[in-house]
C-alpha cells in the first residue's frame, strides 16, 4: 500500500490516497454498499500494474451498471449476464488490451451462467470480478442464485427453501473443476485484513491475464444493506459470520 505511485514525486510521502483509476465523481451506491470498496480495489490494482491505458472493462446489468461513470478508463455496457461473451469479443480482437468484467450474483450466476462457464472453459484470457452479496440489489432485493438457505428476500419472504428454490450456487467451486479455469479465489470486504487479501487476489488474477495464463475469477463476498434490509454494520457482520460459513474464503485454484 505504501508509496502507491512512484511516477509522481510529490506524493512520495503518501500512505493511502485515492487511486487515479477512479474518477472524481462520487458514486450513487447506498450507504455501506461493498461495491465502492471493490471499485477502489480494482482501480488501485489497475494503477499499480500500470495498465490503465490498456483497460477495456465490461460493466454488468445490476447496481454496478454505472461503473463507467466511476472508473477512469474505457468501459462498455453489456446485456444482462453477457459480459463474458462481450469480453471475449473484445479480447479476441485486441489481445494486447486488458479486459475484465465486473458482475453481480444475478448477472453472473443466474442469467449469465452459460456465458461464464463457457468463457472459463475456453480459458478465455480475461478476468472476472464477481461481487456476491446474495441478493438482487438493483431490483429491490429478490432471491439471488447465491441466497443462503433460509435467507429472507423479497421473493423468499419465509426464507429460501431447498424444495422450491434449490441451493445457493458456489461459483468458485463450480468453476474450479473446469480445466480452463486457471485462477479462482474468493475474498471478502468485511474487514481491513480481508480487503487487503482480496486486493492481492485481484492483483494475482490481473497478473495472470498480463502473463497470458488464461481465465481468472475472483469472487468477493460483499454487503448490500438495502437489498438485505439491514443496517450497514449489521450487514457487514452477517456477511462475515454467516456468508463465509457457506462460501469459504481463500484461493480455490491456482494453476
Amino acid at each position: 500500500m505504501e508509496k502507491i505511485s512512484s511516477e509522481n514525486p510529490s506524493i512520495e510521502k503518501t500512505k493511502f490516497i485515492k487511486s487515479k483509476g477512479l474518477k472524481d465523481k462520487p458514486h450513487n451506491y447506498c450507504p455501506g454498499c461493498g461495491h465502492g470498496i471493490v471499485h477502489r480495489l480494482v482501480a488501485e490494482v489497475v494503477e499499480e500494474l500500470g495498465i490503465r491505458e490498456k483497460v477495456i472493462a465490461v460493466a454488468p446489468v445490476g447496481c454496478a451498471v454505472f461503473a463507467y461513470d466511476y472508473w477512469n478508463f474505457d468501459v462498455t455496457e453489456a446485456p444482462h449476464g453477457r459480459p463474458p461473451a462481450v469480453a471475449t469479443g473484445i479480447k479476441r480482437i485486441l489481445p494486447e488490451n486488458f479486459v475484465f468484467t465486473y458482475q453481480g450474483d444475478g448477472d453472473l450466476a443466474a442469467i449469465g451462467a452459460a456465458e461464464l462457464i463457457h468463457a472459463a472453459n475456453r480459458s478465455e484470457n480475461i478476468t472476472i470480478i464477481f461481487v456476491n452479496n446474495t441478493v438482487y440489489g438493483m431490483t429491490s432485493g429478490q432471491m439471488a442464485p447465491t441466497t443462503l438457505l433460509g435467507q429472507k428476500t423479497l421473493t423468499t419472504p419465509h426464507g429460501r427453501e431447498v424444495l422450491r428454490d434449490g441451493y445457493p450456487i458456489k461459483v468458485c467451486e463450480l468453476i474450479s473443476v473446469l480445466d480452463g479455469a486457471r485462477y479462482v479465489a474468493r475474498g471478502s470486504v468485511t474487514t481491513p485484513k480481508n480487503v487487503l487479501t482480496t486486493k492481492s487476489y485481484i492483483k494475482k488474477a490481473f497478473l495472470n491475464q498480463i502473463e497470458n495464463k488464461g481465465f481468472s475469477i475472483v469472487e468477493i463476498l460483499s454487503m448490500c444493506p438495502a437489498g438485505l434490509d439491514m443496517e450497514p454494520l449489521e450487514t457487514m457482520e452477517w456477511v462475515d459470520k454467516e456468508l463465509i460459513k457457506y462460501f469459504p474464503l481463500g484461493v480455490v485454484k491456482d494453476v
Binding site: 493511502f16 477512479l22 461493498g34 465502492g36 480487503v195
Partner: peptide
C-alpha cells in the same frame, strides 16, 4: 497510527491518509 483501516473500509473513497 496510520493503519489505514478507515481508508480500506470506506466505500465512498472519501478517506485519504498522508505521511508527514
Amino acid at each position: 497510527n496510520g493503519c489505514g483501516a478507515c481508508y480500506l473500509m470506506c466505500p465512498e473513497y472519501c478517506v485519504e491518509i498522508y505521511k508527514e
